[in-house]
């Protein structure tokens, strides 16, 4: 599949936003922190979620009709995501405002947790529900979206805390390391699983000719088509391998080293978040690039 920047930004930004909210509310539940952290924190989470939402519009051919996409929530995970994301943003906003006004926040925060987790499931299921994209068809897709989002959110929370509420930086760093390690393991498991995949579809099943050797001669168009643009990333193997290395290094090991440096200052922890976010972009790019769509069997040769 061709990685689309709009989708890479959407899934990584809202993942970090969800993770940041979960981190902040977690701190609140443990009785740590205060509105000096939670109000700007909620604003930061909203900024991440809003940026993701804006990015998603660039994926649409007809963004002015985006409101229609809430219609089929009974069958479509994409429709469910479209509903849950604004609902979650509204709750985060209300939670932040409640902190600002000194109103009770526990019920709002709990609703936020439910919606954040639901949003992870929706986002993951958009990919995991497609049976023939075998690389995505695994519970690991949802688990990794949730864990990677939470890890980056915790790193962001650590950076925010170092800036606004220093005593919380250390526990956030510890949590970011723990969840980041888990996320890294989950991602490694998905990578290992996907290298062992055998494609179910072959040219023999694609055109129904039972012969082991079938070669495409022509695909019916010489200048390419939607099918050749949308489903192939067209990057050389070396570039894909480089992104894979970037993901392996930047998603956890490098940010972990920065987090372990023992410097609980906002610039250092902010740098850790930026490094990890770059790793997440590489991770999401690779997530798309490694998925081989069976339709590609029909688009192997130009003429």
């Amino acid at each position: 599949m061709r990685p689309a920047w709009s989708v890479l930004l959407l899934t990584t930004l809202i993942g970090a936003g969800q993770g940041l909210f979960l981190a902040l509310f977690g701190a609140e539940v443990f009785g740590m922190g205060g509105s000096t952290l939670f109000v700007p924190g909620a604003a930061a989470a909203l900024a991440l979620l809003g940026a993701g939402l804006v990015a998603s519009f660039f994926h649409l051919g007809r963004p002015e009709r985006a409101w229609r996409s809430a219609a089929k929530w009974r069958t479509s995970w994409l429709s469910r995501e479209v509903i849950v994301l604004p609902a979650f943003m509204a709750v985060v906003l209300a939670w932040g405002v409640a902190h600002k006004l000194g109103e009770p926040t526990l019920a709002l925060g709990t609703a936020g947790v439910v919606l954040a987790l639901a949003l992870f499931v929706c986002t993951g299921m958009i990919y995991a529900c497609l049976p023939f994209l075998q690389e995505w068809r695994t519970p690991l897709t949802i688990v990794n979206f949730a864990l990677l989002g939470s890890a980056s959110g915790l790193t962001a929370a650590a950076a925010l805390a170092a800036w606004l509420h220093a005593p919380l930086a250390r526990p956030f760093v510890a949590a970011a390391l723990a969840v980041g390690a888990l996320a890294y393991l989950g991602r490694l498991a998905a990578l290992a699983r996907n290298t062992r995949l055998r494609p179910k579809s072959t040219l023999a099943t694609a055109i129904g000719v039972k012969h082991p050797r079938i070669v495409q001669i022509a695909q019916g168009a010489m200048g390419g088509s939607f099918n050749t643009r949308e489903f192939f990333h067209r990057r050389p193997r070396e570039a894909v391998r480089a992104v894979r290395w970037a993901l392996l290094v930047l998603v956890f090991p490098v940010p972990a080293l920065v987090l372990l440096s023992g410097k609980y200052s906002a610039p250092v922890l902010g740098a850790a978040f930026i490094l990890q976010y770059a790793g997440l972009l590489a991770e999401r790019w690779y997530f798309f690039a490694e998925a081989k769509h069976p339709q590609n069997l029909y688009y192997q040769a130009i003429a």
Binding site: L60, R65, S69, F132, S201, S225, N227, E230, H293
Partner: peptide, 17 residues
Amino acid sequence: CIGCKYCSWACPYGARE
């Protein structure tokens, strides 16, 4: 149609453009 292309991802035959 909003042009989100999700249905084309969900078609194993590449029938949608």
